[in-house]
Amino acid sequence: MNGVDLTLRALHRGEQHLAKELTTAAERHRADHEVHHVATDLAHWSRENAQRVADVGRDRGLHLGDPPKDHSPGLLSAVRERAAEALVHRPEPALLLLRDLRDLHLGAAQNSLYWEMLGQAAQATRDDALLSVVSACHPQTLRQMRWTNTMIKILSPQALSSL
């Protein structure tokens, strides 16, 4: 197994983890419609990216696992929704959202670095298939980072000074 294979494994895990964390944040902050809907869309992007990484891995003889399943609403989701609605007007949810956004940003940044490394390796080895996947997926990861960064900039002043 070479470095590209190891990086594909790490990126696959990273995209799956980010999809799960985005879905959790979307459920946790369901009362904030923008956060809920955007995080849900971004989670879908990470699931798609994970699938594309798995496909590239399979072409290289790697088995990166089954694709992550979309989370269906259930009892836990209903409890999270009611808790989010009950806490929407208290300052603590804003701090929780900032923490979630920070963690999401760091996860996306980690994935972005893996995409960058794979892109450089694909260019050096003239691996057009890998370069094609990197070119399609990395911009989505960069958009995930821009969204979390923008939300942190918008929410930080009020959330941090209202304590």
Rank of each mutant, 00 (worst) to 15 (best):
M1K: 03
M1C: 11
N2D: 15
N2F: 09
L6W: 10
L6T: 13
A10Y: 04
A10K: 11
A10H: 07
H12P: 08
H12K: 04
R13C: 09
G14R: 01
G14V: 02
E15W: 06
Q16V: 11
H17D: 14
L18E: 03
A19K: 07
K20R: 14
K20D: 14
E21D: 11
E21L: 04
E21C: 01
L22C: 02
T23C: 03
A25M: 08
R28V: 08
R28P: 02
R30L: 07
R30F: 15
A31Y: 09
D32M: 02
E34Y: 02
H37M: 11
V38Y: 02
D41G: 10
D41I: 03
R47T: 05
A50T: 04
A50K: 05
A50S: 12
R52Y: 02
V53K: 01
A54Q: 03
D55L: 07
V56Q: 09
V56L: 12
G57R: 00
G57S: 06
R60C: 11
G61D: 09
G61E: 09
H63D: 15
L64I: 07
G65F: 10
D66V: 05
P67L: 00
D70Y: 00
D70K: 08
H71W: 08
H71K: 14
S72D: 15
P73V: 01
P73M: 00
L76P: 12
S77I: 03
S77C: 06
E81M: 04
E81Y: 14
P93S: 07
A94T: 08
A94I: 01
A94M: 08
L97Y: 01
L97R: 13
D100M: 07
L101N: 10
L101F: 13
R102C: 10
D103E: 15
D103V: 05
G107E: 09
A109L: 03
Q110C: 02
Q110S: 09
N111V: 02
S112E: 07
S112G: 08
Y114M: 06
W115G: 06
E116H: 11
Q120P: 01
A122E: 06
A122H: 07
A122K: 03
R126V: 10
A129N: 08
L131W: 07
L131D: 14
V133Y: 01
V133F: 01
V133R: 07
S135I: 01
A136F: 00
C137Y: 00
C137W: 00
P139M: 00
Q140G: 10
T141N: 11
L142K: 07
R143P: 12
Q144C: 09
Q144E: 15
T148S: 10
T148G: 04
N149I: 00
T150Y: 09
M151Y: 01
I152E: 15
P157I: 06
A159D: 09
A159N: 08
L163K: 05
